[in-house]
Amino acid sequence: MKFQKRIEKEFEALRGGTVPHVKLDNDTTSHAQQRIWTVTIEGAESTLYEGEVFKLRFRFPDKYPLESPEVMFVEKPPVHPHIYTNGHICLSILYEAWSPALTVSAVCLSILSMLSSCTKKEHPPDNDKYVLQSSTQSPKSTSWMFHDDRV
């Protein structure tokens, strides 16, 4: 991987625990080189998700950070209007608005911010149709329509 140095720096930053509410999952902590990381995020205080812990799976393509990592919730995704029950997340920076200036930490903070600004826990209106058609695919294969989520 051409950008191994970058991945290692990002890994150290996360392992150092400097990002509030974000930490590397135990099974990831010893392997900077591995292409799949599990990151846990915790809902912020005074939000609908306070105290809830969620797991995000990051899968790094060969071309990371020129291309976005594949990011989705695993196990039990948050109930949120932009998060599908199969773990896929509708957030533009994970897809066409991805930039090499972003990092794993920046992505986690955007997702946390998306959770924090939520006013009603509900599934996306087209959840059933979407999940039926895309559950075995990578979220990066979806053609997303974005609205106001450029957080």
Binding site: Y84, C90, D126
Partner: peptide, 28 residues
Amino acid sequence: QQQEEAFECGVTPQANGHVDDYSILDHH
């Protein structure tokens, strides 16, 4: 134009009178 879509997020449903996004995806 995008903001006029019926859904804030997710794929545009065919039932809404738009081209199905899954076929657009194939084109992409």
